[in-house]
């Protein structure tokens, strides 16, 4: 019965009332000719393009000579760009999988039938699109520039004209780039005598990053009281052992830099975008939110592709397009 009930609205889309016939054209010639002309135009233009521009062929493949930079195909360059800023599994696999999954799930989230069959048919659709594209571009370019850290040189140069001994203060290392949280940031919190736990000497301070590099995870089988200590789970098949965090001590600074901050940004920015658009009153339903997120995703893809393809030189350094070395 459920199937029959579902079939009713669908059937109306297929059978067309008589009066609609007057709105209809014959596929031959009205559509077939357009398709034919389009095919001819594209065949011709690609023939001309292929006669003028040759496909690249570099030197014979050689795994002993690594070109610098070595880049992925252009449609994967955006993922390669993400690898520079976060954990490789997160940037190269997990985030894109979520993006594709979200893309596929879209019609099951936005189920209303309004706004179909015409460009930007819902209210504020164009505004949402433009705003989301600008939002994503500005934040992405800003984040890439921040993580590249060129501003550190600029500010240091200026400050050293005033005071030749000036250096970027260690407390402000996170403002250099995200990796500096792990490698350049230092702070110390004095720990009262009573709270100094664990065996051995205690220096009386909690120091970032060294005291956070080896934090035992709960239930890892090697930390905690005696009853929480057990042997390696040899009885599990290998792939399960790989998933179980036996013996795992977390490197907190690395985790923060490579996973926590990137995930936080990738989740928080879409939420911020939707929040702003709702406050503006432009996003009023699921379709509006879908337009914002889809536009944000597409813009991120394009911006990262452009940065990765045209602005990454030797050593994946951020350079101007004309400074990207030609590889052979």
């Amino acid at each position: 019965m459920a199937v029959a009930a579902q079939a009713v609205p669908r059937a109306t889309a297929v059978t067309r009332p008589r009066k609609e016939r007057e709105q209809e054209l014959l596929v031959w010639p009205d559509l077939v000719f357009i398709e034919f002309i389009a095919a001819v135009l594209f065949t011709l233009s690609f023939l001309i393009l292929s006669a003028v521009v040759d496909a690249p062929l570099l030197n014979r493949a050689n795994l002993d000579i690594t070109p610098n930079p070595s880049k992925a195909a252009w449609y994967l360059v955006s993922l390669q760009e993400m690898l520079l800023h976060m954990h490789p599994a997160l940037g190269g696999v997990i985030a894109p999988t979520f993006a594709l999954g979200g893309l596929a799930a879209l019609p099951y989230i936005d189920r209303k039938t309004e706004g179909q069959g015409a460009w930007f048919a819902t209210p504020y659709a164009i505004r949402i699109t433009l705003f989301s594209a600008a939002f994503a571009s500005i934040f992405l370019v800003g984040l890439v520039l921040y993580d590249q850290g060129r501003h550190v040189n600029v500010i240091t140069n200026i400050a050293q004209r005033v005071d030749a001994d000036w250096e970027w203060p260690g407390k402000l290392a996170p403002f250099q780039n995200v990796r500096a949280i792990q490698t350049g940031w230092e702070w110390h919190i004095p720990v009262p005598e009573a709270a100094q736990l664990g065996p051995g000497e205690h220096d009386g301070e909690l120091n970032w990053p060294q005291d956070f590099q080896n934090v035992p995870m709960p239930f890892n089988g090697t930390s905690g009281p005696d009853w929480m200590r057990w042997g390696a789970p040899d009885f599990l098949p290998g792939w399960m052992q790989a998933m179980y965090w036996y013996d795992l001590n977390m490197n907190t600074p690395t985790f923060v830099v490579e996973q926590f901050i990137p995930v936080f940004i990738m989740v928080a920015l879409p939420f911020l975008l939707i929040y702003i658009l709702r406050r503006l009153g432009w996003v009023q339903d699921v379709r509006g939110g879908a337009i914002a997120l889809f536009t944000g995703l597409m813009t991120s893809y394009f911006v990262l592709t452009i940065i990765g393809a045209a602005f990454r030189g030797a050593g994946q350094d951020l350079v101007m397009p004309w400074d990207v070395p030609k590889i052979d």
């Binding site: 690249p56 062929l57 570099l58 030197n59 014979r60 493949a61 050689n62 795994l63 000579i65 690594t66 070109p67 070595s70 880049k71 992925a72 195909a73 994967l76 993922l79 390669q80 690898l83 490789p88 599994a89 190269g92 696999v93 997990i94 792939w239 790989a242 998933m243 590889i327 052979d328």
Partner: peptide, 28 residues
């Protein structure tokens, strides 16, 4: 992506190497 390797030049082999290294980092 699969067609990208076939010319067997430096562009092909390194683009595929980069791509496959990316796939290799997937969990499990």
């Amino acid at each position: 992506f699969t067609g990208y390797l076939l010319p067997w030049d430096q562009l092909a082999i390194w683009a595929v190497t980069v791509g496959m290294n990316m796939a290799g980092t997937a969990p499990i």
